[in-house]
Amino acid sequence: MGKRFIIYGLSGLCMEVFWNGFWALINGDINMVGYTSIWMLPIYGLAVFLEFVHNRIRHLSIIARGGVYTLLIFFTEFISGGLLKYILGITPWDYSGSPFSIYGLIRLDYTPVWFVVGILFEKLHDKLSEINLLTNN
């Protein structure tokens, strides 16, 4: 489980850097500078627990599965963001400026993003299964 936690964490970090670089380009930064926080590694690593969910809902449509992942990611983002903000006093992300924000911790307009991320993690889970990384830690 430890190796997969790191794989999911690093995958999430890479996706976030690409996401931020893409939006930098949209906002006129031709350098496409992407960034993230190392605090995000363990948060994205928690996607390892989506494997259990994936195994249980594999038979559902992609819309249903993506919806479940989106809700779980929102929940994880809200709880982890709240713990970081209100217990440690740090904010690796702050959505306060968005009209779609809930307490600055999640953005409801990110629903399609988290839907896609959930499906991508599902595909990663399948690939890890193929290379037998699930049973060999």
Rank of each mutant, 00 (worst) to 15 (best):
F100H: 06
G21A: 03
I38M: 05
E122C: 09
I30W: 08
L60F: 08
R4M: 07
W114F: 13
P112G: 10
N31Y: 11
V33T: 11
R56E: 06
K127W: 07
I119R: 02
I63D: 09
V68Q: 10
L84Y: 11
G67V: 13
L50N: 05
L120H: 04
I90S: 09
L133P: 11
I43R: 04
F100S: 07
L25P: 03
L46V: 01
G34N: 03
I62N: 03
G2D: 01
I26G: 12
W39H: 13
D109S: 15
I90K: 10
L84F: 12
L88T: 12
R56F: 01
K123V: 12
Y69E: 02
L120E: 02
E122Y: 07
R65A: 05
R58K: 13
I38E: 02
V48G: 00
L13W: 01
G81H: 10
N137M: 11
I63T: 03
L134A: 03
N27S: 08
I79C: 09
Y8M: 12
T135M: 14
I79E: 06
F100T: 10
M15N: 12
S101M: 06
S96A: 09
Y44E: 15
E122P: 01
D94Y: 15
L120N: 01
I38G: 02
L108D: 12
I102C: 05
E51P: 15
C14H: 06
Y95W: 08
N137L: 06
H54G: 08
I62P: 00
V116T: 06
G9I: 08
I30C: 14
F75C: 10
K3Q: 04
F5E: 02
G28S: 00
Y86D: 05
L120V: 09
F74K: 10
K3D: 04
F52N: 03
G67T: 10
L83G: 08
I102L: 02
P112C: 14
G89K: 09
L60E: 07
N55H: 07
E51M: 14
L133I: 04
